[in-house]
Amino acid sequence: MGLSPRPEPNFTELSGDEPWITTKLDAFVNWGRKNSLWPMPFGTACCAIEFMAAAASKYDIARFGMERQAFSPRQADLLICAGRVPFKLAPVLRRIWQQMPQPKWCISMGACASTGGMFDNYAVVQGIDSIIPVDVYVPGCPPRPEGLLYGIMMLQRKVGNERMSDKSLRNEMEPDPSSQLYIPPSVIDEISEPFGNSVHQTRSGL
């Protein structure tokens, strides 16, 4: 997002003499993780219907190791936030994210979850990345099931490239000011500013 530079991974650079067993173990663990992601659908609005279509017979999300949908955050490792998130729901989403055990990932499905979308008003959070960290943004309003599947495949690639020795991937939870997740209020205001056509539409008239 260009907010604060992500800290450098705090493991030593690969120099070709990394222990063989660590790299192979990484590959093995990641292979297991990426092919058995358990999604927790946090479905609020229209995108949840397209998520259901993706889970149904024609698109069949089970082909990607997601046969088991976890409706309890404590048994899930992928949060799919499908739909708009109003301010009243923001603490709920934050709580659900905190209830999920590590390792965990998040897909922000649809324009509303990613940026607030067309709901540039008093009630809607302008992007869930101001509440929880997001790994993959899937654009669309709502995204087609193929789009969601592509996002899932992108996440699988990301999961496949993680390294256990990179502690910065897992070591934080709370977005307190000292952590890399913290977004200062001025930045939240800045990224929530109206842009493009919406300036004309909202500032004209009243």
């Binding site: 609020t44 609005a45 739909g83 708009r84 109003p86 009243k88 729901l89 709920v92 067309m118 709901f119 540039d120 008003n121 008093y122 009630a123 809607v124 539409q201 909202t202 008239g205 009243l206």
Partner: peptide
């Protein structure tokens, strides 16, 4: 109200 997105308000601006 957990999905209150202000449709009616935004309609007054469109």
């Amino acid at each position: 109200g957990y999905l209150h997105c202000g449709f009616e308000k935004i309609g007054e601006y469109r």
